[in-house]
Simulated assay, not measured.
Amino acid sequence: MRSALAQMAMSKNIDSNLQKSLDFCDKAKDCDLLFFPEIQLSPFFPQYEKSDVTEYAMNTNSSEIIKLAEKAKGNSFYLSPNIYLEQDGKFIFFFTLLPDR
């Protein structure tokens, strides 16, 4: 199994961070599994207590998650994103493998 780790500086712009993530997917196209850093589509906000970060919350149908899943499928590898997810009114860190099929 060939794995890859993406190291990236995240900005406050979700679209910019998504594009960096998709570019890393293309660079790692020959691997079997690609890992991303914590909260890859937003700045690392857990260090700032009591900050309102709801603008970075996504749901499982968010276009950003769909694009990452499509990229994993297109490159035939597994992807391990780390995303701030709103689910049933609760906020969690989404860390799972997106299947390549």
Rank of each mutant, 00 (worst) to 15 (best):
P43C: 07
L33F: 12
Y56T: 01
S63P: 08
T54P: 00
P81Y: 03
Q47H: 10
I39M: 12
I65S: 06
E49H: 11
E86L: 11
E70R: 03
E49R: 12
N82M: 07
A57P: 10
L79Y: 02
T54V: 00
A69L: 10
F35M: 01
A69W: 11
P43Y: 14
S62T: 02
D32S: 04
K67L: 08
Q47E: 14
M58T: 07
F36C: 03
A69Y: 05
Y78R: 10
M58R: 15
K67W: 02
L79T: 00
C31D: 13
F35W: 10
L85P: 05
Y56H: 11
E49M: 06
N82G: 00
Y48N: 12
N61R: 15
F44A: 07
S42H: 11
K29F: 04
E86P: 00
L85K: 12
T54S: 15
E38G: 02
N61V: 00
Y84E: 09
E38N: 09
K73L: 01
P43Q: 13
G74Y: 05
A69I: 00
N61P: 00
Y48E: 14
L79Q: 02
A69S: 14
D30A: 10
V53Q: 12
P46H: 14
L79G: 01
I66N: 06
P43N: 11
L85T: 04
A28W: 07
S63C: 05
D32P: 02
